[in-house]
Design a protein around this nucleic acid. Structure first.
Lengths: 120, 120
DNA sequence: TCGTTATTTCCATAAGTATGGAAATATGGA
DNA sequence: TCCATATTTCCATACTTATGGAAATAACGA
């Protein structure tokens, strides 16, 4: 990953309500959530939320598709994985002091994904 | 980790020259690098760099100590590890789609750190 | 003490980001 | 077609951040 893109993604997540949006979308899974429902859940005006979703989408952290009158937003898990991989490998050079504590979480995930595939 | 702190750290890294500073400090390791040497390496005026180091330090991503006339800055590996752990667990809920691809990097690091006697 | 080097703080300016009202666009249903 | 709903775009305002010149502070050696 280019550091430009990593910076864009870091900046997109570095704001309270955008991080809240992303976390909500992670919880929701691949099905996604309508923009209006996100706005209601977070108590943010629709146009403000739209701008925030725009930043996340521009950073490639969320995907959107229209469903009737609504537009469904979903977290892009691959993009987030790529960002974390960048931070671990390119930025931190795989240093054990940084990366070793992550082994348990990562291997648990790897284990689950092999056993039962993808969950939503 | 509090999401406020995570946001502070994400924001600190979400800028070109600050990310460059952090990467340089990761490369340099625990010994650290004098502020002036960082400024020279990155071609940034001393006072501008000082402000950037201030942001990184305030986010807890770098540590500093005086050494004679110089002030040595060093990456705080634990802090970076905690940020990544937060992103994997709290933010992404350990989702396999995000975290599984990180298993190899993390376990390689864990392996090396065991050899050196460092554990998490 | 003084002079030199290293770094930070102060300050102003420039640049970028966040917010939300109002209007515009898109969809589906009557 | 007309209307209601869902979302975005336009725009102005407020806020935050980045930058670097100049002065201040800190440490060392003579």
């Amino acid at each position: 990953m280019e550091s430009d893109l990593a910076i864009k993604r870091l900046a997109a997540l570095a704001q309270e309500s955008r991080l809240a949006v992303f976390r909500l979308l992670v919880k929701a899974g691949k099905g996604g959530v309508a923009a209006g429902d996100i706005a209601r859940a977070l108590g943010v005006p629709a146009n403000t939320l739209s701008a925030q979703l725009g930043v996340l989408a521009n950073a490639g952290l969320v995907l959107s598709r229209r469903d009737g009158r609504s537009i469904l937003y979903a977290a892009d898990f691959d993009a987030m994985g790529a960002l974390l991989l960048y931070l671990m490998e390119d930025c931190c050079q795989g240093r054990p002091e940084v990366c070793a504590p992550l082994a348990e979480v990562a291997s648990r995930a790897a284990c689950c994904s092999e056993k039962q595939g993808v969950r939503s």
